Amino acid sequence: KVFVPPFKTKSHFHRVEQCVRNINLEENRQKQNIDGHGSDDSKNKINDNEIHQFNKNNSNQAVAVTFTKCEEEPLDLITSLQNARDIQDMRIKKKQRQRVFPQPGSLYLAKTSTLPRISLKAAVGGQVPSACSHKQLYTYGVSKHCIKINSKNAESFQFHTEDYFGKESLWTGKGIQLADGGWLIPSNDGKAGKEEFYRALCDTPGVDPKLISRIWVYNHYRWIIWKLAAMECAFPKEFANRCLSPERVLLQLKYRYDTEIDRSRRSAIKKIMERDDTAAKTLVLCVSDIISLSANISETSSNKTSSADTQKVAIIELTDGWYAVKAQLDPPLLAVLKNGRLTVGQKIILHGAELVGSPDACTPLEAPESLMLKISANSTRPARWYTKLGFFPDPRPFPLPLSSLFSDGGNVGCVDVIIQRAYPIQWMEKTSSGLYIFRNEREEEKEAAKYVEAQQKRLEALFTKIQEEFEEHEENTTKPYLPSRALTRQQVRALQDGAELYEAVKNAADPA
C-alpha cells in the first residue's frame, strides 16, 4: 500500500507519474540484461516463472523506494519553507533592533533619473484601451486569474509561484530572491499573497519594518495588483503576461516605500484627509467601486432644535492609485451613473470638491465611515485614460460650455463663453411717481452734476437758516454783565433761599 499525504498537490502527482515511468524503464532494462546474459547451459538457464517473479519483486521494491522518495520531497519542501520563513523572521526582528538606512530601489532610481523616458501613451502607439472579451484576452496570453481581478478582490489575489519561477525554484525550499534583494517565500501550497509580500518587503534591504504596518502594505498591494492587471487587460497585445508578476509587484511596493516613507511625499487623497491641502483644487481620480446607489445620508439643519434630515444619495469609491476615499454624488451625477456613462475604472477630473463628514484630520487607512468627498456634476468631467492621477498640474478650474451645465448640478468653477457684442452701461432712475428713466453715460454725468449742485444749494440754505436761529437764541439768552461785588457778613446772613445764594456766589470776585 502507498500512503498519499493530504497535502499532495497536482504537481506532485505529475512527479509520481514520472516515477512510475522510470520504474517501467528499469523493468525493461533488467529484462534485456537477463536475456543477454542467458546461455543454453542448464546450470545458467532461468525459468520464465522465476524471471517474472524476480521482476515482480524488484518492481515492488522499486515502487516502494521511488514512492518513498517522491513522498519525502513534499515533506522536505514544507520543512524547508518553514525553515526559510523562520530565518526570514529572524532577519526581520534583527532589523527592528537596528538602525536601517534608506536605500532607494531600482524603480525609484529609474523614475527619478534624468534619462528620457517613454510615456505610456507613446508606448502603446497612441491607442485607446481595448474592450476585449475574456476569450480574446486569453488568446493574447492574459491569464485567467488576471482577467478575474477587480478592485474588490485584488487584495486577496495570490500568485502561483510555479507559473512564474518553475518547479525547480519552488522545490528548493529556500524561496525566491526578487529585485532589490527581497526574498519571497511562498506558502506551503506554493502561493504568494499579501502576507508573503509584506514579509518580502520587510526583508528587502533599506526597508525599516518599524515604519510600515500590514494594513499599509495590504492597501498598496491591492492597488498595485489592480493596476497591473488592468494594464494587461486594457492593452493585451503590448502587455499580456508582462505586467502582473511577483517581481513587478515587489518593485512597486519598494517604490512606494521609498516615496512615501523615506521621502515623505504623500498622495493627493492623503494630503486632503490629513487636512494639509484642500479638496477644491483640480483633481484627477479613478472610479474604483460603486458602493451604493441610494444610501441614507444625514444632514444636520442649521436650526439646532430641529432633527437631522436624511436624504438618499449615491456613493462611489474614488482612488488616486495610492489610497481611496468615498464620494457623494448629486442627482445629475447619479443619472449619469445609472445610464452607464460613469463606470468602474474610468478616470474623472473634478474641481471644487468638498470634504464632508468628520472635521478632524486622519489618515486614509483610519478614516471614519462618514468622511467622504462631495462632488458636483457642473465641476466633474471625464478625463483621458493616460492622465496622471492626483493633483492636476494646473490647479485652476477647467472651462465648461454653457450647454453642458445642469440646473441642479452645483457650483460651476469656470464657464467658457463667447461675447458677441458689448452694450454700453445704462443707468436707471425710479421717480417718486413710479416712472423709470434710462440714461446713457453722458446724460448720467449731467444729471449727477445737477443733483450735486442742487444738493449744495440746499445745504447752504440750511446752514444759513441754522446760523440765524442760533444768533437769535444767543441774543435772547444773554444778560447784562453785572460787576462782581463782595458781600458783608450781614448780607450773607440775610440770604434766604438757594437762588440768592447762587447769585451771590456767581457775582463774587472769588467764589472759592
Rank of each mutant, 00 (worst) to 15 (best):
W216C: 01
R242G: 08
L333F: 07
L283P: 00
P209Q: 05
A229V: 05
L211R: 15
N241D: 09
I348S: 01
V249A: 08
A179T: 13
S267W: 00
F239C: 05
F159C: 04
R85G: 05
L318H: 00
L251R: 09
L115V: 15
W216R: 04
D320Y: 03
P186H: 09
S370C: 09
S213F: 04
V249E: 03
V207G: 03
R91Q: 05
Y323F: 04
I87T: 12
T259K: 11
D86Y: 12
C243S: 08
K237R: 14
N241S: 13
G390V: 03
H220R: 00
G105V: 02
I224V: 08
E168K: 15
R117L: 10
K237T: 13
D320A: 01
P236A: 10
G409R: 05
L365H: 07
L109F: 10
K326N: 09
S407G: 11
C414F: 06
Q158P: 03
Q426R: 15
T387S: 12
D163Y: 11
T319K: 01
G175E: 11
P397S: 09
A377D: 01
L365P: 09
V284F: 03
A229S: 10
C362G: 07
T114I: 10
R275G: 14
N378I: 01
R248T: 15
L253Q: 00
D416G: 04
K227Q: 01
S403L: 14
V100D: 09
R117Q: 11
R256G: 04
S288F: 02
L389R: 02
G390E: 02
D276Y: 09
N241Y: 08
G141R: 11
C243W: 07
S379N: 14
V124I: 10
P364R: 00
D276G: 10
L251P: 04
I419F: 05
M231T: 08
A268S: 08
I272V: 08
S106R: 15
S130C: 13
L253P: 03
S404L: 06
H220Y: 03
G181R: 08
K281E: 06
P205A: 07
D208H: 12
V344I: 03
D320V: 01
P424S: 13
R341G: 15
A327V: 04
L285P: 01
M231K: 07
E354V: 13
Q158R: 13
G321W: 03
S379R: 15
L389P: 02
G345D: 00
L81H: 09
L251V: 10
I224F: 01
G105R: 02
A361V: 13
R199T: 11
L228M: 10
R117P: 08
V249G: 03
R384C: 05
D309V: 11
F165S: 07
R248S: 13
A240G: 14
S302R: 13
R256S: 01
G340C: 08
I290K: 05
S292L: 12
L244R: 03
L137M: 14
D208G: 04
G413C: 12
S80N: 14
T259M: 09
A327T: 10
S267L: 00
L250P: 00
R85S: 06
P364L: 07
W385L: 02
Y221N: 00
D320G: 00
R99C: 14
L184F: 09
F239V: 05
A229T: 07
W385S: 02
T319I: 03
G181C: 09
P205Q: 08
A367D: 07
I269V: 11
D330E: 07
Y198H: 07
A353G: 14
A200S: 10
G321V: 02
D320H: 01
E247G: 10
L228R: 03
Y221H: 01
L318R: 01
A314S: 12
L244P: 01
P332R: 12
V207L: 04
K430N: 06
S245I: 13
M273T: 15
K271N: 06
P129H: 09
S113F: 07
S301F: 13
S288Y: 04
T112I: 11
L250R: 03
D86G: 13
G193E: 03
T114S: 11
R99H: 14
L211H: 12
T204P: 00
L201P: 00
N241H: 12
S119F: 05
L371P: 07
Y257D: 00
L342V: 07
V287G: 02
D208A: 09
P395L: 10
D203N: 07
P397T: 05
G352V: 04
V325A: 12
F197C: 07
L178W: 05
V124A: 13
K95E: 06
E274K: 06
P186S: 08
G206D: 04
G413D: 11
A327P: 01
P129T: 06
S151G: 10
L211P: 04
N219H: 05
L244V: 11
P209T: 07
E247A: 10
V249L: 06
S113C: 11
R421G: 01
D277G: 07
F391L: 08
I418T: 08
A367T: 09
P424A: 09
Q88L: 07
S294N: 15
A200T: 14
L184H: 02
G181D: 05
A229G: 08
E366Q: 10
R248G: 14
T319A: 04
W385R: 02
P236H: 07
P236T: 08
E247V: 09
W322L: 04
G345S: 00
P397H: 05
V284D: 01
L350P: 01
A279V: 10
V207E: 01
R421T: 04
L373I: 12
E168V: 14
K111T: 06
Q88R: 08
G141S: 12
I261M: 09
R222K: 09
D330G: 05
P368L: 05
T319R: 02
I224N: 03
P395S: 09
E196K: 03
E168G: 15
I118T: 10
L285R: 00
P382L: 13
D262Y: 10
Y255H: 08
G390R: 03
G105D: 02
F159V: 02
W216G: 01
D416V: 03
C362Y: 12
G141D: 12
D320N: 00
E247K: 11
F157S: 03
P246S: 04
P236L: 05
D309N: 14
L371R: 11
R222I: 03
A200P: 02
P236R: 07
V325I: 15
G182R: 03
P382T: 11
F239S: 02
K254T: 01
D416H: 04
F239L: 08
S432P: 14
K270N: 07
I225T: 10
W223R: 02
K95T: 11
E238G: 07
Y221D: 00
G206A: 06
S106N: 08
E196G: 04
T114A: 13
N241T: 12
P397R: 04
D262G: 13
L250H: 06
E260K: 00
R266S: 15
G193R: 04
D258H: 06
Y255C: 08
P364S: 06
R384H: 10
W216S: 00
V207A: 05
N241K: 12
G105S: 06
R381W: 04
A383P: 03
V284A: 11
L244Q: 04
G193V: 00
N219D: 04
I92T: 08
A353T: 12
L107P: 02
V412I: 12
Y323C: 04
Y423C: 04
G206V: 02
G410E: 06
